[in-house]
Design a protein around this nucleic acid. Structure first.
Lengths: 348, 348
DNA sequence: CTGAAAGCGCTTACAG
DNA sequence: CTGAAAGCGCTTACAG
């Protein structure tokens, strides 16, 4: 039998008190006597009451939902995160609404929807382009934004970064210590700040050892791109062929690995491969990838905190944080004899 | 400079008409003169107006958002789908709210949240346990439910299935035609209807050729479980060792493949492996998996249609549909000489 | 073709 | 410790 969801009105009638009292009792207002609170709580429970979030947010101005903006990406990395962020959100009692920016689009496209639902804020992943005007629009409507691994044009939004440079530098030190002779880098896209950061950290790391990059390819952050890059590198004459390859993402590293193997080279005996991200699939024996692990759970927690803490009406001032990644040793790269096992970047 | 989001009130003042007219004009009500509609539309645009979805849904009783309920699963299959379903939803102008049922939990846990936001309906993926009482509760509150690859206890909710039996049967026919001698099956969990369906279809397929299963293992729907199963199977004496293995999911098939190879067996010369799902990662050279591809996009579209079509106040009556999967030939299994290339189940 | 009024289900000053 | 009243921003019969 279908029953409508009961309202505070229904409860107030059953309890013989006003709707105001019901409302206050339900949210545990101290001004209502404990006894009344308990009684009302019991009635609400018995009726199967749930507050109408729409009505509540209409008056409070807070919706209890934050937006999670993803791109139209086939990148495994982002796919893995959905479960994680939804758990982090659930733990804090906030709900997540999903927004997808189509390929070639910009955050701007989903702003109207975000505003419609009066979101308490938005988390935007790195693969979504964010124009200066998009950030400005959100700021003008007081819609707090947290960008992941991306800085906000004009500094009008918060950012949570993995310490990309530090992580990449660590990978460089690892490969140098492993006595690799010709070290190559596979970039994501030429114009990606994320890729550039990782490249900067990596080249700084090998430069510190008085070395330089033996080769550099573009892998477009895709498996296929990584595979192609790996093929190119393996096609080089022996004197130039790299014996170590660092890819700016794990999926690309997977592609590189498959290419290296199909070129008949042994991993890690002839070629070491290191990635960046920390995909779960990296643990599968087929790849067994040594990689820099992004602290995504911590990154999400920080992002939620930034969105959550706004006590007053005004959003928090934008801030930027960098969280250190970990370095995960697996079988795809030669381990220097004296390298501390189980070492992590965090420990430094 | 921060500005509040304008309301119909603001527009009505600027336009010199009533809020009623603004409301009607904005939704293109024919009763408002075209001229007025255009003028109001222009003013709204200029003001950067977006309707307050909370207020609207408070009166209409429709929120424009549907729930997507996922489990705490690390299964790649579900991870890949988030992007797809969010695109399908966006195409139809509905928004998606994410709900996660923790490990060991049941749909019941998230029902209060679903009710709070007065969702227009919910899509529940197969890895989420759905008790009879959960279905009953949703039905009693008129919350339409569509379960994926799972039938509703009591028939009180709709279901969209991949034709699991047909797909698995096709895999069986393929392996039989490939003249494999000892055919094994790796199940998901013993109590999973999904796994049982695929097993039923598969064994029916080989039984039709007068054959029976050479071996059967449990792989728990995980990579590790598949790997373990593959190891067990490869450890059998040569006379019992399978030369063909069908896994009830792609991730398990990946594990099987890695186990088969690490046991020193050649794929597909000595052992053929076939999966079920159609993960993108199956196309990677490291796995190159022949598999039954679930038509998830069509499944999502049907699910949305089931939720969307309710014109009146009452939800649509529950229905159940089965959509045919495709069979994708790749390199992990020997192809029968006379097998039609590019053949799909759909074509039959 | 348009408007005044009521109401969706809450919360929150303001009174007492 | 509790209630009456106003109001959040819409939509929708009901009138005209």
């Amino acid at each position: 039998v279908a029953k409508p969801i009961p309202t505070t009105q229904a409860i107030s009638e059953l309890a013989g008190v006003s709707k105001s009292t019901v409302s206050r009792a339900l949210k545990g207002d101290e001004r209502i006597s404990l006894e009344t609170r308990k009684r009302i709580g019991g009635i609400a429970e018995g009726l199967g009451y749930t507050t109408n979030a729409m009505a509540r947010s209409l008056v409070t101005g807070k919706s209890g939902v934050i937006g999670y903006v993803i791109g139209q990406t086939e990148n495994l990395f982002y796919q893995e995160q959905v479960e994680l962020i939804s758990r982090v959100a659930a733990d804090r009692g906030v709900h997540l609404m999903l927004f997808q920016v189509p390929l070639g689009g910009d955050l701007t496209q989903v702003i109207p929807s975000m505003l419609q639902y009066r979101l308490d804020g938005c988390i935007v992943i790195a693969s979504v382009p964010v124009s200066a005007s998009a950030v400005k629009t959100c700021a003008s409507y007081r819609m707090p934004l947290v960008l992941l691994n991306r800085s906000a044009p004009g500094g009008l939004a918060s950012s949570v970064f993995c310490a990309n440079q530090d992580g990449a530098r660590r990978a460089a030190e690892f490969l140098v210590a492993g006595r690799h002779q010709r070290i190559a880098f596979v970039a994501g896209r030429a114009d990606s700040p994320l890729s550039l950061d990782r490249e900067a950290g990596f080249t700084a790391g090998i430069a510190a050892a008085g070395r330089k990059l033996a080769a550099r390819c573009i892998g477009h952050f895709t498996f296929e791109g990584g595979f192609e890059a790996g093929r190119e590198l393996m096609a080089l004459p022996a004197s130039k062929r790299p014996d170590a390859i660092f890819a700016a993402s794990d999926v690309m590293a997977f592609g590189v690995l498959d290419a290296v193997r199909s070129a008949g080279r042994k991993v890690p005996d002839e070629v070491s491969v290191v990635g960046f991200d920390g995909l779960r699939a990296g643990a599968w024996p087929a790849y067994d990838l040594t990689t820099v692990v992004q602290p995504i759970e911590s990154m999400f927690v920080r992002a939620m905190e930034m969105l959550g803490r706004r006590d007053g009406k005004d959003p928090n001032p934008p801030e930027t944080v960098h969280i250190q990644p970990e370095f995960r040793l697996r079988g795809s790269a030669r381990v220097p004899a004296d390298w501390p096992l189980g070492d992590t970047l965090k420990g430094r």
